[in-house]
Design a protein around this nucleic acid. Structure first.
Length: 979
RNA sequence: GCCGGAAUGGUGGAAUCGGUAGACACGCGACCCUCAAAAGGUUGUGUCCGAAAGGGCGUGCGGGUUCGAGUCCCGCUUCCGGCACCA
């Protein structure tokens, strides 16, 4: 109701006495016309060096800029005013870049495969392709009204077979590669085969010579090297979703990020990407990226490099004979090896079965063995108990209580030969390090807790400093002493070949121990990463099919290029098979497997037609977003995912640098939310590096510069019960908020349906126009900061445009009122200062201050310089054009120009006019401002000092007191220190 | 618990190099236009004392460095994000 009243106000109220005022109706008209004209003229099409989009522009010597947003995922709910923030920012930057002489690649595609689209389709009972395409169309409409200067020819959709053909192609590149440690790069798998054939490389331990292996065995060996491979391993299985998930998609409390279902560990054969091979490069190359430090830190933490050592512990076999088996542990504290008083293996550790003896050792403490009659029984019972726990239960707060059981076996501490008991416990994770640890309870909080609970001995080897008051008997301690800043004690093996660490610092001891381990063959210094391989298959319909078929022996074969794309078959039953969310024994079923005639195929893969079964998993929805920036560059190329020349032009490292060591290349500006810090941004870097290694592209990183925009938040109003009430219907009376007469509370939250505070962009378009929305979103604060949406405040941006309009166009006649007379000097100084500042603000993505500077110029004209001189009006319009392009184009036209100002050039400040003719010198006494002087910028220190001392304010403040010291920073400041 | 980031008027924010705190905008007050309202215009607006001139105080809290600190250093508080049995 209220909005219709307001609408008429901004749209038509002035129809009688000001028919040519900038109203929402006029804005809508201008915006429609200019959007149409830009489209007809192809104003924002950017030329490539070669291929279908080639044009003369790249050769004309302009520098290029590749500007990108994280592309949207088309949900069914439509956009709200928070969504366009990043798009507006990149558009302003793109328009500024074009005006200031760049060839700009700027477009927007859609990421449309994946769970949410499929869930929406299942809910509505409509095929996901239909719903997804409808959603994309409606978002295109909503965004279209913003007037974003995209090159529409480059917009891609990940669900388009012409696009995912290349997603599949890249998968095959990865599948057909291995990581060659000598080259420190991915290489074609054929090179590895060649090395095996020529005997230059040995097959892995336990496998016979290459020449003697069967085809199946060879395939299995290669699978151990391929960068994309399928294997049986514990994965995250979410029965409620009916699919497995990557580690990145599981929250800290063991639930699916999507849908919040319990996630269980299940052993399933799944596709994975060997991203761990790239751990070090993904880590070190962060240093060469212009990214927010916070994101880099998150990636560093996720990769989780830690330096330590592998240490081998001989384990006594069931017959008590030492050395039959060896358990390797990873530790970052090899300096505390003498303090290792027991060992723990993960319950799933493969050596557990081999080391469990038939009987309990005689002296085994009852606390260690529970009431199990034999070690076998105890181990089996414990394994069952831990496996039936979901990850969530394992990690719930009260489950942090350590549990475990003695295996009955003993190992030998390699440092001093002491026998130490071997436990299994679920606080040791199979997926990290070697799945086994040496436990040093005195100096590790987890081992300390476990040892306390089971009465295991503690040995101090790092001496707490005297001032800590801890003493050297851990029995008195409340927690482990895990400092690095102390001295090693009790660590001396005087026997032949033994090592002594006593008296060393922790860092020295780590080095000494690593050397000793290496020299005696008991271990070695090593680097371990937290990063795990990326689980890449999903039991879903709505995703890219794998270009993989299996032969009768179950060997996976890559399909040849000629058979791509493997199109997703149109089927009726696309629903995933989901289960009771808590049914951990359920097994995933892929929708594609129900479609026998698609699955069973006869193909000729080079050795005659044969029967094959297609892979029925699909790719996760990260796949398309891993490389879409490359397709923007060359969207229509049918011969390659991107022509090397086009890629080099838009993304290659800057001249003369090696992408592996210097500038890594990549997109010049990538804007998006920080929620993708480790998922999309890590996966995309990984794929990009593989493609780089294989020589398909010249850039080593996809995104040279990354910028995280903040979130636009909304006020959430809650009633007494805490339920959100519709924000649009809340009234404010005397700083309190009421909904239907009831008092409600206000807080800040996300904008969304569930919080009932969605503001659709149409509301602002209709009320004020798209230019106002753009301007408001840019003006409301720094791009990287989250801030609350305030519908009431939008009018401020509208008023600015209205005043700008009024300074150029007569509201009653529509005549242009500018005069062809030179501007006065004050006005010129105001203008040129703004030009200088706005340029710098745009370059630095500080749009909020750029807006303020443009407003200042306009305010000056309003107050002091009407009628406005043409040169000032034109440059102000150009200044505003990136922010409010429609109204700027309109004014530009009315000022007599016939071409779009998109490429008109951006005003350049005259340095003489940027520098002030006089500056205000602040005169302080004891740091407090007591007077101001208007002085020349070139005034000498002495002259300024004299002027300041003589000034009225200073005399008053000094009140006869003497002067001890005078600090002069000509011409801006004088500070007088009284005696 | 660990790792980040933030805190400035009634509100969003500005101050880019240690040098005028509060640009710009919202809101609010006064006035003009109007039968009236809306829209628009002019103008004021950190806070306290004061008629004014002018002065006191002021950037989450407590210290410090400095002629001078929103900005640098040390110690806290609160809020927001991320990670979390990672050996």
């Amino acid at each position: 109701m209220e909005s219709t009243v307001m609408k008429s106000d901004t749209a038509t109220a002035e129809a009688v006495d000001a028919p040519h005022r900038y109203t929402s109706a006029l804005a809508a008209d201008i915006e429609r016309r200019w959007q149409q004209r830009w489209a007809e003229d192809g104003t924002f099409e950017a030329a490539n060096p070669v291929g279908a989009l080639a044009g003369s522009t790249p050769a004309d010597g302009r520098p290029k800029r590749f500007i990108m947003d994280m592309f949207p995922y088309p949900s069914g709910t439509g956009l709200h005013v928070g969504h366009p923030l990043g798009y507006i920012a990149t558009d302003v930057y793109a328009r500024y870049s074009r005006a200031s002489g760049h060839n700009v690649l700027y477009t927007l595609g859609f990421d449309a495969f994946g769970l949410p689209a499929e869930q929406y389709a299942v809910q509505t009972g409509t095929h996901p392709r239909i719903t997804t395409e409808a959603n994309i169309a409606s978002i295109r409409t909503q965004l279209g009204r913003l007037g974003l200067s995209h090159d529409p020819r480059r917009s891609v959709e990940t669900i388009d077979p012409a696009f995912y053909r290349w997603t599949q192609w890249i998968f095959l590149q990865i599948f057909n590669s291995w990581y060659d440690p000598d080259a420190d790069a991915a290489r074609p798998i054929d090179e590895l085969v060649g090395r095996f054939e020529r005997g230059e490389k040995d097959t892995p331990e336990g496998v016979g010579p290459w020449a003697e292996l069967s085809a199946v065995e060879r395939a299995e060996v290669l699978s151990g090297y391929r960068l994309a491979y399928a294997d049986d391993a514990p994965v995250n299985w979410a029965p409620g979703l009916g699919t497995v998930l990557s580690n990145e998609e599981v929250t800290a409390d063991g639930r699916s990020e999507r849908g919040n279902f319990p996630v269980f560990r299940a052993n399933l054969r799944q596709w994975k990407m060997r991203i761990t091979s790239y751990a070090q490069r993904l880590l070190s190359d962060l240093d060469r990226l212009d990214w927010p430090e916070a994101i880099k830190i998150q990636q560093r933490n996720w990769i989780g490099r830690s330096e330590g050592a592998r240490v081998e512990f001989p384990v006594e076999g069931p017959d008590g004979e030492a050395g039959e088996h060896t358990v390797t542990v990873f530790t970052t504290r090899q300096d505390t090896l003498f303090g290792a008083t027991y060992m723990v293996l993960a319950p799933e550790h493969p050596l557990v079965d081999a080391i469990v003896p038939a009987q309990w050792p005689e002296h085994a403490a009852s606390a260690w063995i529970g009431d199990a009659a034999t070690p076998r029984e105890a181990v089996d019972a414990y394994r069952r108990a831990t496996q039936t726990k979901s990850d969530m239960e394992r990690q719930a707060a009260d489950a942090k209580e350590k549990t475990g059981v003695f295996t009955g076996a003993y190992a030998v501490n390699p440092a001093d030969g002491r026998r130490v008991p071997v436990f299994i416990a679920d606080y040791v994770l199979m997926g990290y390090g070697t799945g086994a640890i040496m436990a040093v309870p005195a100096h590790d909080s987890r081992d300390f807790a476990f040892a306390r609970k089971y009465g295991l001995p503690m040995q101090v080897v790092v001496e707490p400093p005297a001032e800590s008051g801890l003493g050297t008997d851990p029995a008195d301690w409340e927690q482990a002493f895990d400092s690095y800043d102390a001295t090693i004690v009790n660590s001396d093996d005087s026997s032949e070949g033994g090592v002594s660490l006593n008296g060393l610092t922790v860092t020295e001891a780590k080095r000494r121990m690593a050397e000793w381990l290496e020299s005696t063959g008991r271990g070695a210094a090593t680097v371990n990463y937290r990063l795990r391989d990326w689980l890449f298959s999903r039991q879903r319909y709505w995703g890219e099919p794998f270009p993989i078929v299996y032969d009768e022996d179950g060997v996976a074969h890559a399909l040849p290029d000629s058979m791509l794309p493997v199109e997703l078959p149109e089927i009726d039953d696309y629903s995933p098979r989901t289960f009771d969310p808590d049914d951990r024994d359920s097994v995933p079923e892929t929708p594609l497997s129900r479609n026998e005639e698609w699955v069973e195929v006869t193909l000729d893969l080079g050795d005659g037609p044969k029967r094959y079964r297609r892979e029925t998993n699909t790719m996760p929805n990260w796949a398309g977003s891993c490389w879409y920036e490359l397709r923007y560059v060359d969207p229509d190329n049918e011969k390659a995912l991107v022509d090397p020349e086009n890629e080099r032009y838009w993304m290659g490292p800057s001249d003369g640098t090696d992408a592996r060591t210097g500038d890594p290349g990549g997109v010049d500006l990538y804007v998006g939310g920080s929620e993708h810090a480790v998922l999309h941004l890590l996966y995309a870097r990984f794929w990009h590096k593989v493609l780089f290694d294989l020589g398909h592209i010249s850039s080593d990183e996809p995104f040279r510069k990354l910028f995280n925009q903040g979130m636009i938040q909304g006020f959430v109003y809650r009633d007494e019960r805490g339920f959100p009430v519709p924000a649009a219907e809340v009234e404010e009376i005397d700083d309190a908020y009421y909904y239907q007469g009831e008092k409600v509370s206000r807080e800040l939250g996300k904008i969304g349906k569930s919080l009932k505070n969605v503001v659709p962009p149409e509301l602002v378009y209709d009320e004020y126009g798209a230019d106002t929305l753009r301007l408001y979103e840019m003006a409301m604060g720094p791009l990287e900061v989250s801030r609350p949406w305030d519908t009431r405040a939008v009018v401020g941006s509208f008023r600015f445009l209205q005043r700008l309009w009024r300074n150029i166009v007569d509201e009653s006649t529509g005549a242009v009122t500018v005069v062809d007379e030179p501007a006065d000097e004050v006005t010129l100084r105001v203008l040129h200062k703004a030009i200088d500042g706005v340029r710098r603000d745009f370059e630095g993505l500080r749009f909020n201050t750029a807006v303020a500077k443009a407003i200042e110029v306009n305010n000056h004209l309003t107050k002091a310089a009407r009628p406005v001189p043409r040169e000032v009006a034109e440059q102000l319009v150009q200044l505003v054009a990136p922010l409010a392009p429609h109204v700027a184009e309109e004014l530009w036209t009315r000022l007599g120009h016939t071409t779009s100002l998109a490429y008109e050039g951006f005003p350049v400040a005259d340095p003489a006019l940027v520098a002030d003719e006089t500056v205000t010198c602040v005169v302080q006494v004891k740091g407090k401002v007591r007077d101001r002087l208007e002085v020349s910028p070139s005034i000498s220190e002495d002259e300024l000092r004299d002027l300041a001392l003589a000034s009225e304010g200073v005399q008053r403040a000094l009140d006869g007191a003497g002067v001890r010291k005078v600090i002069v920073r000509a011409p801006k400041l004088v500070n007088i220190v009284p005696a």
